[in-house]
Protein backbone atom coordinates (compact mmCIF):
# COMPACT_ATOMS: atom_id res chain seq x y z
CA UNK A 1 0.00 0.00 0.00
CA UNK A 2 1.33 3.43 -0.92
CA UNK A 3 1.99 6.35 1.39
CA UNK A 4 -1.26 8.28 1.84
CA UNK A 5 -1.59 11.45 -0.23
CA UNK A 6 -0.33 14.56 1.59
CA UNK A 7 -2.67 16.80 3.53
CA UNK A 8 -2.96 20.33 2.21
CA UNK A 9 -5.51 22.89 3.28
CA UNK A 10 -5.21 25.65 0.67
CA UNK A 11 -7.68 27.14 -1.79
CA UNK A 12 -7.20 26.89 -5.52
CA UNK A 13 -8.60 27.10 -9.00
CA UNK A 14 -8.79 24.94 -12.07
CA UNK A 15 -6.28 26.38 -14.53
CA UNK A 16 -7.88 26.80 -17.94
CA UNK A 17 -6.49 28.35 -21.11
CA UNK A 18 -8.66 31.47 -20.81
CA UNK A 19 -6.61 32.42 -17.73
CA UNK A 20 -3.13 31.26 -18.72
CA UNK A 21 -2.02 34.84 -19.28
CA UNK A 22 -3.22 35.88 -15.80
CA UNK A 23 -1.30 33.09 -14.15
CA UNK A 24 1.87 33.69 -16.15
CA UNK A 25 1.94 37.48 -15.90
CA UNK A 26 0.51 38.18 -12.46
CA UNK A 27 0.54 36.75 -8.97
CA UNK A 28 -2.86 35.14 -8.73
CA UNK A 29 -3.59 34.66 -5.01
CA UNK A 30 -4.27 30.93 -4.97
CA UNK A 31 -2.59 28.25 -2.89
CA UNK A 32 -2.59 25.73 -5.74
CA UNK A 33 -3.95 25.13 -9.21
CA UNK A 34 -5.41 22.03 -10.75
CA UNK A 35 -5.04 21.10 -14.41
CA UNK A 36 -6.67 18.44 -16.55
CA UNK A 37 -3.90 15.86 -16.89
CA UNK A 38 -4.78 14.80 -20.44
CA UNK A 39 -4.39 18.35 -21.76
CA UNK A 40 -0.70 18.14 -20.88
CA UNK A 41 0.02 14.50 -21.75
CA UNK A 42 1.48 15.66 -25.05
CA UNK A 43 4.99 15.39 -26.43
CA UNK A 44 5.87 19.08 -26.21
CA UNK A 45 4.96 22.55 -27.37
CA UNK A 46 3.38 25.47 -25.60
CA UNK A 47 1.05 23.54 -23.24
CA UNK A 48 3.94 21.80 -21.48
CA UNK A 49 5.91 25.04 -21.36
CA UNK A 50 3.00 26.88 -19.76
CA UNK A 51 2.56 24.13 -17.20
CA UNK A 52 6.26 24.24 -16.32
CA UNK A 53 6.11 28.00 -15.82
CA UNK A 54 2.95 27.85 -13.72
CA UNK A 55 4.47 25.03 -11.68
CA UNK A 56 7.36 27.33 -10.77
CA UNK A 57 4.82 29.62 -9.08
CA UNK A 58 2.19 27.27 -7.65
CA UNK A 59 1.72 23.70 -6.47
CA UNK A 60 -0.16 21.79 -9.18
CA UNK A 61 -2.73 19.03 -8.83
CA UNK A 62 -3.19 16.71 -11.83
CA UNK A 63 -6.82 15.81 -12.40
CA UNK A 64 -7.54 13.17 -15.02
CA UNK A 65 -10.66 12.19 -16.90
CA UNK A 66 -9.49 9.14 -18.88
CA UNK A 67 -8.16 6.56 -16.44
CA UNK A 68 -11.43 4.64 -16.66
CA UNK A 69 -10.85 2.98 -13.33
CA UNK A 70 -14.16 1.13 -13.53
CA UNK A 71 -13.50 -0.46 -16.90
CA UNK A 72 -14.15 -4.21 -16.98
CA UNK A 73 -11.37 -4.45 -19.60
CA UNK A 74 -8.76 -3.30 -17.13
CA UNK A 75 -6.53 -0.26 -17.52
CA UNK A 76 -4.77 1.19 -20.53
CA UNK A 77 -1.07 0.72 -19.76
CA UNK A 78 -0.02 3.18 -22.46
CA UNK A 79 -2.18 5.81 -20.79
CA UNK A 80 -0.68 5.07 -17.40
CA UNK A 81 2.86 5.32 -18.78
CA UNK A 82 2.16 8.73 -20.27
CA UNK A 83 0.55 9.90 -17.04
CA UNK A 84 3.56 8.65 -15.07
CA UNK A 85 5.83 10.69 -17.31
CA UNK A 86 3.78 13.81 -16.60
CA UNK A 87 3.72 13.04 -12.87
CA UNK A 88 7.49 12.68 -12.82
CA UNK A 89 7.86 15.98 -14.64
CA UNK A 90 5.36 18.01 -12.61
CA UNK A 91 5.76 16.45 -9.15
CA UNK A 92 2.13 17.27 -8.42
CA UNK A 93 0.44 17.94 -5.13
CA UNK A 94 -2.23 15.33 -5.95
CA UNK A 95 -3.07 12.99 -8.80
CA UNK A 96 -6.76 12.34 -9.17
CA UNK A 97 -9.37 10.83 -11.46
CA UNK A 98 -12.98 9.70 -11.17
CA UNK A 99 -14.86 6.68 -9.92
CA UNK A 100 -16.27 6.03 -13.38
CA UNK A 101 -15.51 4.26 -16.62
CA UNK A 102 -15.22 5.43 -20.21
CA UNK A 103 -13.53 2.61 -22.12
CA UNK A 104 -14.77 -0.82 -23.15
CA UNK A 105 -13.98 -3.16 -26.04
CA UNK A 106 -11.74 -0.64 -27.79
CA UNK A 107 -14.33 2.10 -27.53
CA UNK A 108 -13.79 5.26 -25.50
CA UNK A 109 -16.82 7.38 -24.67
CA UNK A 110 -14.79 10.27 -23.25
CA UNK A 111 -17.49 10.64 -20.63
CA UNK A 112 -17.57 9.73 -16.95
CA UNK A 113 -19.97 6.81 -17.12
CA UNK A 114 -21.50 5.40 -13.93
CA UNK A 115 -20.24 2.36 -12.09
CA UNK A 116 -22.84 0.07 -10.51
CA UNK A 117 -22.31 -0.13 -6.78
CA UNK A 118 -22.01 -3.90 -6.63
CA UNK A 119 -19.52 -6.28 -5.05
CA UNK A 120 -18.31 -7.32 -8.49
CA UNK A 121 -17.60 -3.71 -9.46
CA UNK A 122 -15.95 -3.00 -6.12
CA UNK A 123 -13.55 -5.91 -6.55
CA UNK A 124 -12.69 -4.84 -10.07
CA UNK A 125 -12.26 -1.16 -9.21
CA UNK A 126 -9.96 -2.04 -6.32
CA UNK A 127 -7.83 -4.25 -8.58
CA UNK A 128 -7.58 -1.44 -11.11
CA UNK A 129 -6.71 1.13 -8.44
CA UNK A 130 -3.95 -1.13 -7.12
CA UNK A 131 -2.53 -1.38 -10.64
CA UNK A 132 -2.81 2.37 -11.27
CA UNK A 133 -1.18 3.30 -7.98
CA UNK A 134 1.64 0.86 -8.62
CA UNK A 135 2.14 2.30 -12.11
CA UNK A 136 2.27 5.86 -10.80
CA UNK A 137 4.18 4.98 -7.66
CA UNK A 138 1.84 6.91 -5.42
CA UNK A 139 -1.66 6.99 -3.96
CA UNK A 140 -4.32 8.54 -6.19
CA UNK A 141 -7.48 10.44 -5.27
CA UNK A 142 -10.78 9.35 -6.78
CA UNK A 143 -13.71 11.69 -7.22
CA UNK A 144 -17.38 10.92 -6.89
CA UNK A 145 -18.90 11.77 -10.31
CA UNK A 146 -22.34 13.19 -11.02
CA UNK A 147 -24.58 10.44 -12.28
CA UNK A 148 -27.81 10.31 -14.21
CA UNK A 149 -28.54 6.59 -14.06
CA UNK A 150 -28.74 4.33 -11.01
CA UNK A 151 -28.61 0.57 -11.45
CA UNK A 152 -31.22 -1.77 -10.00
CA UNK A 153 -28.71 -4.36 -8.87
CA UNK A 154 -26.67 -1.97 -6.71
CA UNK A 155 -25.98 -3.63 -3.36
CA UNK A 156 -24.59 -0.62 -1.52
CA UNK A 157 -24.73 3.15 -1.51
CA UNK A 158 -22.22 5.28 -3.40
CA UNK A 159 -20.65 6.45 -0.13
CA UNK A 160 -20.34 2.90 1.18
CA UNK A 161 -18.65 1.94 -2.09
CA UNK A 162 -16.21 4.86 -1.82
CA UNK A 163 -15.43 4.08 1.81
CA UNK A 164 -14.69 0.42 1.15
CA UNK A 165 -12.72 1.23 -2.00
CA UNK A 166 -10.54 3.64 -0.06
CA UNK A 167 -10.10 1.22 2.84
CA UNK A 168 -8.99 -1.64 0.60
CA UNK A 169 -6.64 0.29 -1.68
CA UNK A 170 -5.39 3.18 0.43
CA UNK A 171 -6.50 5.63 -2.24
CA UNK A 172 -7.58 9.10 -1.24
CA UNK A 173 -10.92 10.70 -2.02
CA UNK A 174 -11.72 13.86 -3.92
CA UNK A 175 -15.10 15.05 -2.72
CA UNK A 176 -17.00 16.96 -5.38
CA UNK A 177 -19.74 18.67 -3.40
CA UNK A 178 -21.62 19.72 -6.51
CA UNK A 179 -21.62 16.11 -7.74
CA UNK A 180 -23.00 14.96 -4.40
CA UNK A 181 -25.79 17.52 -4.76
CA UNK A 182 -26.52 16.66 -8.41
CA UNK A 183 -26.59 12.90 -7.80
CA UNK A 184 -28.64 13.30 -4.61
CA UNK A 185 -31.27 15.29 -6.51
CA UNK A 186 -31.25 12.91 -9.47
CA UNK A 187 -31.47 9.72 -7.41
CA UNK A 188 -33.32 10.95 -4.33
CA UNK A 189 -30.78 10.30 -1.59
CA UNK A 190 -29.85 12.56 1.31
CA UNK A 191 -26.63 14.45 0.48
CA UNK A 192 -25.86 14.75 4.19
CA UNK A 193 -25.93 10.97 4.50
CA UNK A 194 -23.31 10.91 1.73
CA UNK A 195 -21.10 13.39 3.60
CA UNK A 196 -21.43 11.46 6.85
CA UNK A 197 -20.85 8.14 5.09
CA UNK A 198 -17.49 8.80 3.49
CA UNK A 199 -14.34 8.45 5.62
CA UNK A 200 -13.36 12.06 6.39
CA UNK A 201 -9.74 11.14 6.98
CA UNK A 202 -9.43 9.90 3.37
CA UNK A 203 -10.61 13.13 1.76
CA UNK A 204 -7.73 15.25 0.52
CA UNK A 205 -9.42 17.61 -1.88
CA UNK A 206 -12.82 19.19 -2.48
CA UNK A 207 -14.27 20.40 -5.78
CA UNK A 208 -16.90 23.08 -6.07
CA UNK A 209 -18.66 23.69 -9.38
CA UNK A 210 -21.92 24.73 -10.97
CA UNK A 211 -24.58 22.66 -12.68
CA UNK A 212 -27.49 23.13 -15.07
CA UNK A 213 -31.12 22.33 -14.45
CA UNK A 214 -32.65 20.10 -17.12
CA UNK A 215 -36.19 18.75 -17.36
CA UNK A 216 -36.49 16.72 -14.17
CA UNK A 217 -32.75 16.20 -13.91
CA UNK A 218 -29.65 18.15 -12.86
CA UNK A 219 -26.64 18.05 -15.15
CA UNK A 220 -23.05 18.64 -14.08
CA UNK A 221 -22.00 21.22 -16.67
CA UNK A 222 -19.36 23.32 -14.89
CA UNK A 223 -20.69 26.36 -16.75
CA UNK A 224 -22.40 28.16 -13.87
CA UNK A 225 -21.40 29.73 -10.58
CA UNK A 226 -21.62 27.50 -7.51
CA UNK A 227 -25.26 27.64 -6.33
CA UNK A 228 -26.44 28.45 -2.81
CA UNK A 229 -27.46 24.88 -1.99
CA UNK A 230 -23.99 23.63 -2.90
CA UNK A 231 -22.34 26.37 -0.82
CA UNK A 232 -24.49 25.28 2.12
CA UNK A 233 -23.53 21.66 1.60
CA UNK A 234 -19.88 22.70 1.37
CA UNK A 235 -20.17 24.34 4.80
CA UNK A 236 -21.46 21.09 6.22
CA UNK A 237 -18.72 19.13 4.48
CA UNK A 238 -15.99 21.36 5.85
CA UNK A 239 -17.27 21.03 9.39
CA UNK A 240 -17.01 17.24 8.96
CA UNK A 241 -13.71 17.14 7.09
CA UNK A 242 -11.64 19.80 8.77
CA UNK A 243 -8.89 21.56 6.81
CA UNK A 244 -8.68 20.17 3.27
CA UNK A 245 -7.71 21.57 -0.14
CA UNK A 246 -10.65 23.18 -1.93
CA UNK A 247 -10.91 24.46 -5.47
CA UNK A 248 -13.35 26.02 -7.89
CA UNK A 249 -13.81 23.98 -11.06
CA UNK A 250 -15.14 25.90 -14.04
CA UNK A 251 -14.89 24.54 -17.60
CA UNK A 252 -17.40 26.39 -19.75
CA UNK A 253 -18.83 29.88 -20.22
CA UNK A 254 -15.64 30.99 -18.57
CA UNK A 255 -15.98 34.30 -16.69
CA UNK A 256 -13.16 36.76 -15.98
CA UNK A 257 -10.69 35.51 -13.40
CA UNK A 258 -11.98 37.98 -10.81
CA UNK A 259 -15.36 36.23 -10.73
CA UNK A 260 -13.75 32.88 -10.05
CA UNK A 261 -11.47 34.40 -7.42
CA UNK A 262 -14.58 35.73 -5.68
CA UNK A 263 -15.77 32.12 -5.47
CA UNK A 264 -12.39 31.04 -4.12
CA UNK A 265 -12.73 33.74 -1.44
CA UNK A 266 -16.24 32.54 -0.69
CA UNK A 267 -14.94 29.00 -0.17
CA UNK A 268 -12.21 30.31 2.10
CA UNK A 269 -14.74 32.26 4.18
CA UNK A 270 -17.11 29.31 4.51
CA UNK A 271 -14.29 26.96 5.46
CA UNK A 272 -13.12 29.43 8.12
CA UNK A 273 -16.60 29.68 9.61
CA UNK A 274 -16.99 25.89 9.52
CA UNK A 275 -13.66 25.45 11.30
CA UNK A 276 -14.74 27.87 14.07
CA UNK A 277 -18.04 26.02 14.38
CA UNK A 278 -16.14 22.73 14.67
CA UNK A 279 -13.89 24.14 17.41
CA UNK A 280 -16.86 25.60 19.30
Amino acid sequence: MHTPPPTFSGFGLGLRKEHYRDFLDTDVPVDFVEVISENFMVDGGQPRDILRRVREKHPVALHGVSMSIGSSDGLDLHYLARLRSLVDDVQPLFVSDHLSWSRVAGFNSHDLLPVPYTDEALDLVCRNIDMAQDALGRAILFENPSSYVAFDDASMSEWAFLAEMSRRTGCGLLLDVNNVYVSACNHGFDPHAFLRGIPADRVRQVHLAGHSVGPGILIDTHDQPVCDDVWSLYGTAMSLLGPVATMIERDDDMPPLAELMAEVDMARDIATVSARREVA
Binding site: D111, Y148, A150, I217
Partner: peptide
Protein backbone atom coordinates in the same frame (compact mmCIF):
# COMPACT_ATOMS: atom_id res chain seq x y z
CA UNK B 1 -31.31 -0.62 -17.86
CA UNK B 2 -34.93 -0.39 -16.67
CA UNK B 3 -37.73 2.02 -17.44
CA UNK B 4 -36.57 4.57 -14.87
CA UNK B 5 -33.19 4.92 -16.62
CA UNK B 6 -34.44 6.46 -19.88
CA UNK B 7 -34.06 10.10 -18.88
CA UNK B 8 -30.55 9.64 -17.58
CA UNK B 9 -29.49 7.57 -20.57
CA UNK B 10 -30.51 10.42 -22.85
CA UNK B 11 -28.26 12.77 -20.85
CA UNK B 12 -25.30 10.47 -21.48
CA UNK B 13 -26.25 10.10 -25.13
CA UNK B 14 -26.47 13.88 -25.52
CA UNK B 15 -23.17 14.40 -23.70
CA UNK B 16 -21.47 11.84 -25.94
CA UNK B 17 -22.59 13.41 -29.20
CA UNK B 18 -22.23 17.01 -28.07
CA UNK B 19 -18.71 16.37 -26.87
CA UNK B 20 -17.60 14.77 -30.14
Amino acid sequence: FGAHAARGLHVYQNNYRAQL
